[in-house]
């Protein structure tokens, strides 16, 4: 088990290194000048060269690469070209903002999807619940998630006016850490969070349903029924076994899901790391973009590792070698 985890970690490091390297060279070969933004604000040539030097954009590509990796190893992502601040300082609050919609959104999406999927899978075949459940889930899954976001905005913000449609807090509210504990923040959080849930739920629901449908006719379910336990308990056995395929899908799917969250952040102007990533690329703020991609790669790799380990916890038949 320990050997397995160590080997997987080593593989993960390799993957992250590869992603980092690719990102690094991609940004360097793009024919664009990151100082362009600043030039517009009237930057002298001298100042420009000094900046390039400071940003580590002088010297051969190889030298730049080695310097970049060396800095990464000590957790130094460099400074943002635009904000003129260390990347960490720029990203940390944005990461926290993203986690606010991503973590509860994905957890609730998965949990609700699994619960409803179990109910739909356990319902009478061809009955109303089954048909409605599958229909709704399939439709929502087919809708691009910016449409979900815009629909939510149109209905609950523009038309009904129940929720604010923009950003994370009204002006003049608390800033810093204290803001997370205000009603105003929760008010702003609601719509993007709901968007993440709606976006993530259908796939979970459909996977869980097909698992339960498959499992409910298995012999072991018949014996559980024969034992005279409650119906809920019987359904639980089917659900518990259906979680296995769900888990294998769930964690790797996070990669794709993160892309979806980027879109939701943009639609709701949620100041998260995904939105910043897109902005950073268009602004050629390489250090920020590279750091964001690096963090994404780390998250995805860790999610895959977590999937393996959780699967092993849930399925006694799995042996780690």
């Amino acid at each position: 088990m320990r050997a397995y985890i160590l080997r997987r970690l080593a593989q993960s490091v390799l993957v992250i290194w590869a992603v980092t390297t690719i990102m690094f060279f991609m940004f360097r070969v793009m024919p664009a000048d990151p100082t362009a933004i600043l030039l517009e604000r009237g930057l002298s040539d001298e100042a420009r060269n000094a900046l390039l030097e400071q940003w580590g954009l002088t010297g051969s590509l190889w030298d730049q690469y080695v310097a970049y990796l060396g800095n990464l190893l000590v957790g130094d992502f460099g400074s943002s070209f635009l904000y003129r601040k260390p990347v960490w300082e720029v990203l940390t609050p944005l990461i926290i903002n993203t986690l606010w919609i991503a973590v509860p959104g994905l957890l609730l999406g998965a949990a609700l999807g699994a619960a409803i999927g179990t109910a739909v899978g356990w319902a009478r075949r061809g009955g109303k619940l089954e048909r409605t459940g599958i229909f709704l889930a399939t439709v929502i899954r087919g809708v691009p998630n910016f449409v979900i976001g815009i629909a939510l905005l149109t209905v609950f913000s523009s038309t009904l006016g129940w929720f604010p449609g923009f950003g994370m807090g009204d002006p003049g509210q608390n800033v810093g850490f204290a803001r997370y504990f205000t009603l105003d923040f929760l008010h702003h959080l609601a719509l993007p969070l709901i968007a993440v849930i709606i976006y993530f739920m259908p796939e979970n629901l459909l996977l869980m349903r097909s698992g339960v449908v498959e499992n409910r006719t298995e012999d072991y379910i018949e014996l559980v029924r024969a034992k005279g336990v409650s119906q809920g308990r019987v359904a639980w056995h089917a659900a518990r076994n259906s979680m296995l395929p769900l888990i294998t899908w769930l964690f790797p799917a996070l990669a794709e899901t993160i892309a979806g969250i980027v879109v939701i952040e943009i639609v709701f102007s949620w100041p998260g790391v995904g939105r910043e990533l897109v902005l950073a690329v268009t602004r050629q703020d390489y250090p920020v973009a590279q750091a964001a991609f690096f963090l994404l790669a780390v998250m995805i790799v860790l999610a895959n590792l977590a999937a393996d380990l959780v699967y092993g916890k849930l399925d006694p038949r799995v042996v780690y070698k």
């Binding site: 012999d219 072991y220 014996l223 024969a226 296995l244 006694p316």
Partner: peptide, 14 residues
Amino acid sequence: SLITQSAMNSLDPV
């Protein structure tokens, strides 16, 4: 109570 025909698959694997 019931002793099932296919004990191979009659137990919940998890």
